[in-house]
Design a binder for these strands. Structure first.
Lengths: 347, 347
DNA sequence: GCGTAGTGGTTATTCGTATTAGTTATTCGT
DNA sequence: ACGAATAACTAATACGAATAACCACTACGC
């Protein structure tokens, strides 16, 4: 009745002994269609023994035996820890769990050695695949060892163009943001963005492209007097919003390429004793949880679809993710708050 | 020479065949003190074969065979994804990796079923232990299944008092924050806190206790006119700072029990056309990355030692973490920025 | 009265690694 | 020159679960 080695966890043999059947019977009852070929009596005995001993299957034995994967690897520079993109891991995990898989995570802080070593460790667990996540959208070089296993670049793109990537649709985001202002009746829509060439950021480039596309569609030209490029901090937001709002021809709306610059813009507008949205409408980007909802008025902005992206990445992995270089762009939903209204009538 | 099953990963037997030695030799060369009992020639052959085949040890086989743990489990309500505490996972992971262990993470969003199921899955991997992390400091109920494995409550405390806990030292934090203001010469130090009884938050209770202790030590009484309790949002910070700064006897410094209320206080002070720190010094708490450094002036605050706590929790697990109910309080370091100075001379 | 089908199990083997206990040569001490 | 020690390596086994193959027995058709 009692376990042979009382200190160690019970095995199937212990359960079998307790139930008075063979180990194979236990396995079949537990796995194979509920052991329909066995008598009710036997099934009951097995289940009782399992419950009584607190038996739990040994995953190592299981996955060794049938070569399947029980986990998905997640390697990130600092995603997990980042206040921006933490949710990315949530989506990945959710999706993995739907297939009964756990997430094996590692953030490397960009350390290539650590990256290689931990990737190695993950591969030795025979993971179903590896998600290579990044804190912000960029073009990155992936470790070579990823070649041997299904893997997906998340919130970034493989510069070499081999691995499939899942990233936010920046162009469409910039388009939608601008369009949102246009639709509210604005015709003088400014933009405070991040340097295009210098930064090379897909977010900056893409959102600007969307901005120009939306203006063009509305029959408007980009007015250089209404556009500023900086480094994306709230100090830039302050400075450029101040410039724009004190220029001879002020915009009636500003699209800030991220919530931080929007925050800076809020401060500038406040210092000018102007009102948002009555004097100027503002749209941000990123839906930064700690900032956007708490500004006054609440900032209308676009959300990076972290959860959806995480889900999709694992999705691709579970489908076998060939290195086909595809780039899946995910839509950034509008989060409407109070910083946008129609323009005042011009006097 | 060639692998028997070309599609599957090479095993030690494949390496052995390629090197013309036995599997045991490969294992011994690879693990046992570098195989010092073997000839140089043999060692070289084995290593060449390993490199050529790209052999990687199968973790499942290894951990099945010797029953050791290769991973540490991390279960959180929403820690991983939270913009506040994401770093907690970083410390845990760092420490685990120092012992060659990976982190198996799951955030459950508070779902008890998911919690139980994923805990079960983790235990079946024979993890060295489980860190049960929480998004914010509170007293929580832990799942029963944790009893069977070394486990530690992180950034919270086991209400039942069984599991060891690692949490921030709120009392000392509140004391240090107040003391920092006192040391700058302030004698009228206000506090904007969260409801004590209603919330039951260790952060609110502890920081307040530290506040009163520091005042007492300086020979000062708590002046109820200088203390406010709310819900911890920036709107409360705004409202109460406004009250305090327009009262007959204004404080020359305010200790805000979190950065969000401090942010609100900043807005109130700005609306009153007063200056931080010249008219009033402000100390926050939490060192919220997206807010504290970007306020103007930068907010002097205290940091929750997430990385250190994460490290310590895994530390305890690797030491075998008995359910001794101990509570380890970790110090919150001062992050000095620009929101504190000495008080103006009274006219 | 014998083959056939079903019922209810069990036995033996496999996965990949680590390790104990040998085995076979070679060298050494006296 | 003979037993002992040493060097260099191998054979066999265990870890825990899954499963293919097999076995014993009953029931049934005709």
């Amino acid at each position: 009745m009692a376990k042979s080695k009382p200190n160690s966890k019970p095995t199937m043999h212990d359960v079998a002994a307790a139930a008075g059947v063979s180990q194979a019977t236990v396995s079949l009852v537990l796995n194979s269609a509920g052991g329909s070929r066995f008598s009710d009596e036997t099934r009951r005995k097995v289940k009782d023994a399992v419950a009584q001993l607190g038996y739990r299957t040994n995953a190592h034995a299981k996955f060794l035996r049938d070569g399947l994967a029980g986990m998905v690897g997640f390697i990130g520079d600092s995603v997990a820890t980042s206040p921006f993109a933490g949710a990315i891991i949530e989506g990945a995990q959710e999706r993995a769990w739907e297939d009964g898989l756990l997430l094996l995570t590692m953030n490397t802080g960009g350390d290539k050695d650590l990256e290689a070593a931990s990737l190695d460790a993950m591969l030795s667990y025979n993971v179903a695949g590896v998600v290579y996540g990044s804190m912000y959208h960029r073009l990155l070089e992936v470790p070579k060892a990823l070649a041997g296993v299904p893997s997906v670049v998340l919130n970034s793109q493989d510069r070499a163009g081999h691995l499939p990537s899942v990233a936010p649709d920046e162009v469409n985001g910039g388009y939608s943001a601008t369009r949102h202002l246009l639709d509210a009746g604005h015709t003088r829509v400014g933009m405070i963005n991040i340097e295009l060439l210098e930064s090379g950021l897909p977010a900056a480039v893409g959102r600007y492209e969307g901005y120009t596309a939306a203006l063009a569609e509305a029959g408007l030209d980009v007015d250089p007097a209404l556009v500023r490029f900086g480094r994306g901090g709230e100090d830039d937001g302050y400075k450029y919003a101040m410039e724009l709002m004190t220029a001879p021809e002020q915009p009636t709306a500003i699209f800030c390429a991220n919530d931080r610059t929007a925050w800076g813009a809020y401060q500038a507008v406040a210092d000018l004793r102007l009102s948002i949205p009555d004097d100027v409408s503002i749209v941000g980007f990123d839906n930064q949880a700690i900032v956007a909802p708490h500004l006054r008025p609440g900032l209308t902005t676009f959300e990076l679809p972290f959860i959806a992206m995480g889900r999709r990445a694992v999705d691709l992995i579970l489908q076998g993710a060939e290195p086909d270089g595809r780039v899946e762009l995910m839509e950034c939903p509008l989060i409407e708050r109070k910083s946008v209204t129609h323009p005042k009538e011009m006097p």
